[in-house]
Simulated assay, not measured.
Amino acid sequence: MPHTMDPKKNHLLAALPEAEWLRCRGFLEPVDLPLGQVLYESGRPMSHVYFPCNAIVSLLFVMENGASAEIAVVGNEGIVGISLFMGGGSTPSRAVVQSAGLGYRMRAGALTEEFNRSGPLMHLLLRYTQALITQMAQTAACNRHHSLDQQLCRWLLLSLDRLQGDELVMTQELIANMLGVRREGVTEAALKLQKLGLIRYARGHISVLDRAGLEQRSCECYGVVKKEYDRLLPERRAT
């Protein structure tokens, strides 16, 4: 299937001033992002950064015994591979596509060259990085202090913010791996939300029926993260 997605479906690319956009678009390569694809592994050099358009990528921290937990999600608001322009070149986390879709990638050298111009792209990427760090910190606090159904609400809302529409294709096993909990716990939390009329879950499809109710049941962590993204990246509200 030909890739026809507009690169400016990614909010960071859409926010670039015209001169930077014209320079960067020649470096962008369309890519399919199928479910489960690993974009980079822990400790390995990164060759590209990725700009999802209608896919969601999960950043996971993997323990020595193979257990993992999600530390952040990236979708059409952002970029996967911040270590490339932050100077690290690699990261202890793993990036895995959790919701299939399309996106664009840029070679590491091209991104670094553009970043080192110290222009609008650099400032935009640094503001995005600050927002991403907030999401990581709030996720750690949420996983420690809030109930599983509150965590699930936060996770659903963050994922929806990075997609178009009100439906996610996601198995309970995958959600459990993302949240670092047992599958049975996710099943119980999802059934509770379904009985409240907030979601409908069937065969790996989660439909949000009452977003306002989901936001009300979520802990304050979702609001903290969203407020910081909106403060640092106001162009998100206009797309």
Rank of each mutant, 00 (worst) to 15 (best):
L157K: 01
C153G: 03
R162C: 12
R127F: 11
L124K: 03
L156E: 03
R94F: 04
L152I: 12
Q135Y: 02
R162N: 10
R154S: 05
T129V: 07
L156K: 01
R107A: 04
L111D: 01
L148W: 02
A95W: 11
M136A: 03
M136S: 02
E114A: 15
L156C: 08
C153T: 03
D161I: 00
A108N: 11
Q151C: 04
L121R: 10
Q130Y: 08
S118K: 13
Q130E: 11
A137H: 13
M122Y: 08
M122D: 08
A141Q: 13
D149P: 09
T134F: 00
C153V: 05
L160Y: 10
Q150M: 06
A137W: 09
Q151N: 10
L158H: 03
G103V: 08
S118L: 12
S99L: 14
A131V: 02
D161P: 00
E113C: 09
Y128A: 02
R117G: 12
M122E: 06
C153H: 01
H123L: 13
H145D: 04
L132T: 01
V96Q: 10
L132V: 05
M122N: 09
H145G: 00
Q150A: 12
L156Q: 04
T112R: 15
A131L: 02
T112Q: 15
P92D: 15
L102P: 00
L102H: 09
Q138I: 10
C142K: 10
A100T: 05
W155I: 00
C153P: 00
N143R: 13
P120I: 00
G109M: 14
R94H: 08
T112G: 14
L152E: 03
S147V: 02
T134W: 00
L156P: 02
M122H: 08
L152Y: 01
N143K: 11
M136P: 00
Q150W: 00
C153I: 01
T91I: 13
V96G: 03
L126A: 05
G109I: 15
C153A: 12
Q98F: 14
S159F: 07
H145S: 07
A100E: 13
R107E: 10
L102A: 15
E113Y: 13
